[in-house]
Amino acid sequence: MAKKIESPCVSICQLSGGLCTGCGRTVEEIRHWKAMKRPEKMKTVKRADERLKKIPRD
């Protein structure tokens, strides 16, 4: 069996414009995480990582 994909949540749940500034996921991605299959989770983690790179940091 394939290794479980862990949630990218870092327990800094702050939403800004429908996006969590802690993990980079959208509200919809967060809501559907548990029901996602492994390939969808992998894509979500990749998209979230790309979003986080674009968020300005203090």
Rank of each mutant, 00 (worst) to 15 (best):
R38G: 08
D58C: 08
K41G: 06
R25E: 05
A2F: 04
E28R: 13
R51G: 08
V45H: 10
G18Y: 09
M42K: 10
C9I: 04
A35P: 04
A35K: 13
Q14K: 13
R38M: 07
K3W: 05
K46A: 14
V45C: 13
K34G: 07
K53D: 06
R51C: 05
H32L: 08
L15T: 03
K34A: 14
L15G: 14
K43M: 04
K54Y: 01
K37W: 01
C13E: 07
G24Y: 14
K3E: 05
E50G: 06
P8I: 02
C23H: 15
I12D: 12
E6G: 08
I12R: 15
K53I: 02
P39I: 02
M42D: 09
L19P: 04
M1F: 10
I30A: 14
G22K: 06
E6Q: 14
R31C: 00
K53S: 10
S11Q: 11
D58W: 12
K3V: 05
T44D: 13
K54H: 03
V27M: 11
K4D: 05
L52E: 03
R47C: 00
R51Y: 15
C23P: 09
I55E: 07
E6V: 01
V27I: 15
C20T: 02
K4L: 08
I30V: 09
I12Y: 13
K41S: 00
R47W: 14
V10E: 03
E6H: 13
K53T: 00
L52K: 05
R47Y: 10
T44Q: 13
G22W: 06
C13K: 07
I55H: 15
E29W: 15
R57K: 14
L15R: 09
W33A: 05
I5E: 00
E50Q: 09
R31I: 00
I5A: 06
L52Q: 12
D58M: 11
K34R: 12
E28C: 00
C23T: 05
V10Y: 10
R47S: 01
S11E: 11
I5Y: 07
R47Q: 03
K46T: 02
M42N: 08
S7A: 10
C20R: 00
I5D: 04
I55T: 02
S11T: 11
V27G: 15
P56D: 07
K53E: 06
I12M: 09
A2C: 09
I55F: 15
